[in-house]
Structures are given as C-alpha cells and as structure tokens.
Design a protein around this nucleic acid. Structure first.
Lengths: 243, 243
DNA sequence: TTAGAAAGTGTAAATTGTACACTAAGTTTG
DNA sequence: CAAACTTAGTGTACAATTTACACTTTCTAA
C-alpha cells in the first residue's frame, strides 16, 4: 500500500513539459527521443514522466525536466491536465510502456506545464530514457507519442492568451534587448504583424520596459537602444479597460 | 493490477467541483456535508470524489457532481489541478478517508472544475456520502476540508479573468434577462460598480446581446426590455485591442 | 564617399472611454 | 384618481486611445 510520504513513483500521475524556445527567429519546442524506442524510426515526445508520491506537481515537473534534458532553474507553469483513458492507443506507445514502466497498463493522467526560454541560454543534454533532446520549430512538429500533439497545441493557444497578462515575452529575450526584438516576439507568438511606431508607443507607455544608457553593438547599421523589463512595474500586463 | 479500461476507482486521482450559483443577489457556492463526519460539527466540502479508470476527467467531474448533488446537464470547465502531498493533514480528513476509502493513505491529486449556474434552475439533492448539499455565499465560506478553500479561491479568481473572454455571465441569468440583471452579474463577479449608460452602450455594441419584443412583467415600475444572448455572435468576448 | 540597413520619430482622423442627470413608464398608495 | 415611488432608458462634451502612414538619422562595410 502506498503511503502519502513514500518516495515511490505513482503509477497513475505524470507530468509533461512544453518547453518553448526562441532564438530571435522562430519558436521551437524541446522534444526528446525515447529510449528504448522499439521499432522506432525516432518517436518524439514532450519531456515527461511519472511523479513521485512525496513531491508536489510543480516539483515533479522540474525534476522530470532536469532528469530528461538537464535543464533546470526555469519557471514552469501548469496549464491543463489531460486524462483520456484513450490517451494510450498507439502500438509503439504501449510497447514502450511495457519496456519501461512497472505498471504499463495503469491509467495515467498527465499534468501539463509550459515554459518559455531563450534557446541560447540552455544546453539540453539528454539522460534517463531520453536518448536525444532536440529543438523542433513548432510548425514542423510531426506526430508525437501519446496525446502530446494535443498538449503542445493547447500550450500554444494558452501562451497566446497569457502574453497579454503575464510578462512571458521577456523570458524569450536576453536581459537587455531592443524594441525590435520585443516586437518580433509579440508578432511570432500572436502570428500577426504590428506597426512599429504604435508598438513602441504602447509598450513604452506601460512603464515596465525601461531604456538603458546603452546601445546595441556589432551591427552593420544604426545601433538600437537597449531596454530592460522592470518586473516591479508590471501590474497585470497591458492595460485594458472593458467598461 | 489495474487495467486501462477497468471500471475501478483510481485511488490517486479525484475531481472537485466548484459550482457557483447566482440568485440575482449574490454568488454562492455549492457545498456538501460529508457522511460519516466523525466528530463532525459539520465539515463542509466541495463535491468531489475519486475517478474511475475508464472515464475521462470531464466525465468523472459530471458523474461525481451528479452522484453527490443530483445536479446534471451543466457545463463543467477544468481550471487547475491540485496535488500537494501535504493536502491531507487535518485529523478529521484523515479519519474520514479511513472510513470511506479503500486506500485511505494513497497520494491523491485532484483536478478541479468550475461551473456557473442559476440557483433557481437546480435543486441539489444530496446522496452518496453527501448528507447535505447547501448553497453558501462565497464570502461566508468558513474552513473547508482538505485544500478546498484554496481550490475555491482559485476558481473565483479564474472566473473573473474568464468573464471577459467567455460567455459565462449568461449562465447566471435566465434565458431572457434585463440589462440591469446582466450588469449586476458583471458587478458582482468583478466586485466593482459600473456606469449604467456606459455598460449598456458597450454591451449592445458587441452584438451578442439582442433585445426582444418583450418586457419584464409583474414589476412595480417601468418594465424593462428583455434581452437574449446570441452565442453565434460571441467571438472571443468583449473586443479588446492590445496593439 | 557612398550604399545599405535598420533605428527612431509625429500627426491627423476616427474611435472609444469617461463622467454625469434628467425624463419616461409603469405600480402602489392614500 | 392623483400623487408618490421605483426603475428604465437615454445623450453629450471632453479626454484618451487607436489607427494608418513615410521620412530622417546613424551606424557599418564596401
């Protein structure tokens, strides 16, 4: 009988992480190639695994990410829990579970987390059952294991929503950034083009993006002013009045 | 060994429902009194219970609500999953679990759902381990079992957010309603006062609230025009431009 | 020195937000 | 049946925000 504070894997609950990365160009998602992979012409998955009975869900998400990809110290945010009994139907998935899990037939629900990071600030190094960890542009993602495509899509939609209310754009940029970089983040996440002058006016009026006494270096054109995000001025994001 | 499609209770996963009700006056939450209650000077809980291994989370939420309160046919929306190993610390809770659960020591994570309904359109009738089902004004809710206070609070915050993007205000009103009623819903959920003229202008401009050729009846003053919500015109809620 | 490339800036017109108070249309009461 | 009561319903002036739009500046590299 499992006890509340036993350090044992819970066969019924897993976490999955949607790590979205940005490289000043496009949004990519961090995927792992599972090992063993059975026939495996490389089946890809979100980094996720069962939780321990003595850790919180947030801790589990962090730990699992660390164990599979070596990435730590990032802020993970829970966004949805997936639990269709029919999540696991693909033959490859079933075989993989049999090879890896103590209770391969158990009903598993998974709590999904996302994070946004700069690709160049982390170096994923696969371990545990991840034989590879790779960044894949989100619109080039093919079929993933289990219901991971569904999880990824929901993450992308939720991130769009949260862009207005949470300072997530800045997690995709270096500490010091230009307004052009910031605009690009908004454009890529929202999948739309924005007017440069209007964007600048609006962003600067919020007060949570501060200019520095510093310019971009090493560019073959007029160097842009660098800016910083000021967390303390961020009160619920872009101001919006509904009434 | 549990199988994916067995009709057995999963000892590790539960659902909890935050049913918010409105009676044209204030927001109340539907709570149950558990049976057996031990020493119990009436410990109150959100209606929730373990899931079966062969049902989806959404199905489980519906079923559990039905079994405990008799309420069915309402739209339940998942909003967060709670899973601290320390969720269960109160002595009363532990005793109750021992009396009722096959695996009282099991680590349980709970997937929380909310719904908004009109109080006068439902008649909660307690059954299963609910010896009572009552509506409690949300600001009169005292200490609940487990972490149910935390779950309720998160539900209330999330509902505020979603009011702008989802047509949830209309679930708290009869099919035909006056603009004063609608305004009251917004005011109560947002905990703020709104200007009557500005509210009307803004709501009517959205196009998803349509006037009927019908007036309020049986009131001791000028009868108000009745309105309907038009789902098909609702595109993401109140229009807001961020850039 | 010139060409290239992105930075940075302003304005006019339309729309939306805000604050605010009286008249209209019923019912109830005396 | 008149008066009192209660809520419905409406408009406007001013401020703020949104939108659309193009040229000059400043740096590097050739």
């Amino acid at each position: 009988m499992r006890e509340t504070s036993n350090h044992e894997l819970n066969p019924n609950v897993s976490v999955d992480n949607v790590i979205l990365g940005f490289d000043d160009d496009e949004i990519k998602v961090l995927l792992i190639e599972r090992q063993p992979a059975g026939s495996s012409n490389g089946s890809l998955a979100l980094p996720g695994n069962l939780i321990y009975d003595d850790e919180t869900l947030d801790q589990a998400a962090k730990r699992v990410l660390m164990e599979l990809t070596g990435i730590s110290d990032i802020y993970l945010q829970q966004f949805h829990t997936f639990g269709d009994p029919g999540r696991i139907t693909k033959k490859q998935d079933i075989e993989w579970l049999k090879a890896v899990r103590a209770h391969p037939e158990a009903r598993v629900i998974t709590v999904a987390y996302f994070s946004l990071i700069r690709i160049d600030e982390y170096e994923p190094t696969p371990s545990a059952f991840a034989k590879n960890a790779i960044w894949v542009p989100v619109d080039e993602v093919k079929s993933l294991v289990f219901d991971h495509n569904e999880i990824l899509n929901k993450a992308l939609v939720d991130v769009q929503q949260k862009l207005y209310h949470q300072p997530i754009a800045f997690k995709l940029l270096p500490e010091k950034f230009t307004l052009a970089q910031l605009q690009r983040v908004y454009e890529i996440i929202l999948q739309t083009e924005l007017d440069k002058r209007n964007f600048r006016r609006k962003i600067l009026k919020t007060g949570f993006v501060l200019p520095l006494d510093e310019k971009q270096q090493g560019v073959a054109h007029k160097p842009a002013t660098l800016y910083m995000f000021d967390q303390s001025k961020f009160n619920g994001g872009l101001q919006v009045s509904h009434f």
